[in-house]
């Protein structure tokens, strides 16, 4: 806020400030408003790209149809399970690994770079590495190792498809949680740590009463950003299970995709899309609040 007070006198000398912001704002308004308005418009119509002439206004019929479709609720359940599991895994392990990588050890810089690498791998590549080379029931490395030990092999995508997706997504996003939480841990006041240690706090108490409270905000930020991305997981499912077997890995994003580009049901897909928007917005409100609070500091 202090900054705005200082610079206000100069505002008169440079008139086009508003003009400079305008292009970015207009672009984003168009990007937000036009597709959303179209989605609402489509959602109120019977409209299938396979029979485009048979198009008419049907009011809330698409919403009724989608909301009474048991597949939608199954897909919402799968979405929530996927989001919650990966959140717990990435944040739980991420916190522990952040503490580990905060210790000084030989070659820490290189080790850290290796550890965060999976985050930069494009989703289709990571999904296929896991599907083919690691989790394949015959030639995959996991199957080869467990069979070598006489334990038999797991057919991951047939028997434990959702767990397989959870593992893949966790592998991609654990580095993200680690990177953010490590950055936050490094800003911890070392004097405070020393003082607590002088007072005889052991490592566990130090973690519980000094490190964890310090990390709480970073953890909240990670949780919210990850949630936004996890609600929309698509490529990993697209290249591994295609939503199957049955509906076992059909999350909300994949459900809408099936409606949209396989059934070409514009009305139904738009209604489903709007439900996804509402779901994401509930979470977004929390995220925006904490970000906005941070703007002043």
């Amino acid at each position: 806020m202090a900054a705005s007070v200082v610079s206000r006198p100069q505002q008169k000398t440079t008139a086009p400030a508003g003009l400079l912001v305008a292009p970015a704002i207009i672009a984003l308004v168009l990007w937000m408003v036009v597709p959303l308005a179209m989605a609402i418009w489509f959602a109120c119509q019977r409209y299938n790209l396979l029979s485009p002439d048979n198009r008419e206004f049907v009011g809330v019929q698409n919403f009724v149809y989608v909301l009474t479709d048991s597949s939608l609720w199954i897909s919402i359940g799968i979405t929530l399970m996927l989001v919650m599991s990966v959140l717990v895994i990435t944040i739980g392990l991420g916190t522990l690994l952040a503490v580990l990588f905060n210790q000084e050890f030989a070659g820490r810089g290189v080790a850290r770079v290796l550890a965060i690498s999976p985050f930069f791998v494009m989703p289709t590549v990571s999904a296929l590495i896991w599907k083919n080379m690691l989790m394949h029931p015959v030639n995959g490395l996991f199957a080869q190792v467990t069979r070598g030990l006489g334990l038999g092999a797991i057919d991951w995508f047939a028997d434990l498809p959702l767990l397989a997706i959870i593992i893949i997504v966790s592998w991609q996003w654990l580095p993200f949680a680690l990177l953010i939480l490590l950055t936050s841990i490094q800003s911890l006041d070392t004097d405070q740590m020393e003082a607590a240690r002088m007072d005889g706090a052991n490592a566990l108490a130090l973690f519980r009463f000094v490190v964890l409270p310090h990390l709480s905000r970073a953890i909240a930020v990670v949780a919210m950003i990850e949630t936004i991305f996890f609600l929309a997981i698509f490529a990993e499912i697209f290249v591994t299970t295609a939503g199957g077997p049955g509906l076992a890995t059909t999350n909300l994003a994949y459900y809408i995709y099936l409606k949209a580009l396989l059934e070409f049901d514009v009305g139904g897909a738009s209604a489903g899309g709007l439900i996804a928007v509402v779901l994401a917005n509930i979470i977004a409100i929390f995220l925006m609040r904490s970000v906005a609070r941070n703007l002043d500091t």
Partner: peptide, 29 residues
């Protein structure tokens, strides 16, 4: 450098467009 009363709101609004799930507007796009 030339913040106004609305700058903070504009920034937050810009970020909020990131929250729109892509799949929600798949069909219109």
């Amino acid at each position: 450098f030339f913040p106004t009363k609305r700058t903070k709101g504009t920034l937050v609004w810009m970020l909020s467009t990131k929250m729109l799930p892509a799949v929600g507007v798949l069909m219109p796009i």
